[in-house]
Design a protein around this nucleic acid. Structure first.
Lengths: 156, 156
DNA sequence: TATTGTTATACTCTATAACTATA
DNA sequence: TATAGTTATAGAGTATAACAATA
C-alpha cells in the first residue's frame, strides 16, 4: 500500500485549490471594493519589505516599472502607502505602509482566519493533529528558499 | 494538547498559499502566453460543464455578459471553443471545448501534477499517509455543496 | 555610461447602455 | 413582457518609448 508521488500530487491538486478558493473569497471580501488585486499584492510586499524600492514591488507583482509607478500613485493618494526619496540614493524611493494601510491588511487576515476557524470547528482532535502534521510535512517541500513567511503573504 | 480552530486556521493560511503559488506557476507555464487568466478559467468551466451557456460562464468567471461574449470570441477565433446555437432555445448558445482546447487543459494539468510529484519524491511513507489523510479531512470542509470536483478545477 | 523612476502615448480588457432575437 | 446574447461606446489598467535625475 505504498502511496505514489503521482497520487499524492493528484490529491493536493484536488484539495488545495478548493481551500484557496475560500481564502481568496474571504480575503477579497475584506480587501475593500476599491483595492485591486495588484494593489493588494503590492501592499503585502511592502508590508513584508518595509522601505522596498519601486523596482522591488514591480518585480514581485509582475508589472512594469511605469505601471507600478501609477499603481503606487493610487495607494499614496488614498493614504495607504508612504513614498519618500531615499537618503542614500536619491534616485530611489522608499515605500512603507501607513498605519491605515497596515490596518487593512491585518483586518483582512484576521477576518479570514476567523472564518476558516469557524469552518473547522467540527474537526475531531485526531483530524486536527492530522492536518497540523500534514502542514508540517508540506511546508518545507513548497517553501521558497529565498523568502521568509509572514502574516500577510500571498492570497491572490 | 488540544489544537484550537484558530491555530489550525493559522497553519492552513500559512501553508496553503505557498503550495498554491507552485501550482499557479506551473499551470501558467503551460497555459501558453496568449491565454489570459479569465480565458483559462472560462475554458475550465466549459470543460466541466459541456454545453454551458454564456451566462453560466459569465457567472463563474465573474465577468459581465458583454465582456464574456468578447472573451469567448477570442477563444472561438483561436479554435479552442465551439459556440453553437441551442436547439431547444434559440436565444442560447451552447459552449464546448474543441479537442485542441481540451488538450491544452489536460497538458497543463499533467505537467503540473508531474512537477508536484517530483517535488514530493523525498517524502517518507509515513509522511505520505499523513498528507493523504489530511486532504481527506479538509476536502469535505471546504468543498462547495453545489459543485462537483473535476480534474481541471480552479487553479488561478 | 548605467540605474531609478516618471511622463507620454497606445492598446487591451472590462463595464454600462442600447439593441436584436427568441420565449 | 422577460430573457439570452451581441454591438457601441467609454473608462480602467498595462505596456512600450522617451525622458529626467542621480550614481
Amino acid at each position: 500500500m505504498d502511496i505514489s508521488s503521482e497520487y499524492l500530487a493528484h490529491e493536493i491538486l484536488d484539495v488545495v485549490p478548493i481551500i484557496m478558493r475560500t481564502i481568496r473569497r474571504e480575503m477579497r471580501s475584506h480587501r475593500g471594493p476599491d483595492l485591486s488585486v495588484p494593489q493588494y499584492r503590492a501592499m503585502n510586499f511592502i508590508r513584508n519589505h518595509p522601505g522596498a524600492s519601486l523596482s522591488g514591488v514591480a518585480d514581485h507583482v509582475g508589472l512594469t516599472l511605469p505601471s507600478t509607478s501609477k499603481l503606487v500613485d493610487g495607494l499614496v493618494g488614498r493614504g495607504l502607502v508612504i513614498r519618500q526619496e531615499s537618503e542614500l540614493d536619491r534616485r530611489r524611493v522608499d515605500l512603507k505602509l501607513t498605519q491605515q494601510g497596515d490596518s487593512i491588511l491585518v483586518a483582512a487576515y484576521q477576518h479570514t482566519q476567523a472564518c476558516l476557524a469557524r469552518m473547522l470547528t467540527g474537526l475531531s482532535p485526531g483530524d486536527r493533529e492530522e492536518v497540523i502534521a500534514a502542514m508540517g510535512v508540506l511546508r518545507p517541500v513548497f517553501s521558497p528558499v529565498t523568502e521568509e513567511a509572514a502574516p500577510g503573504e500571498e492570497h491572490e
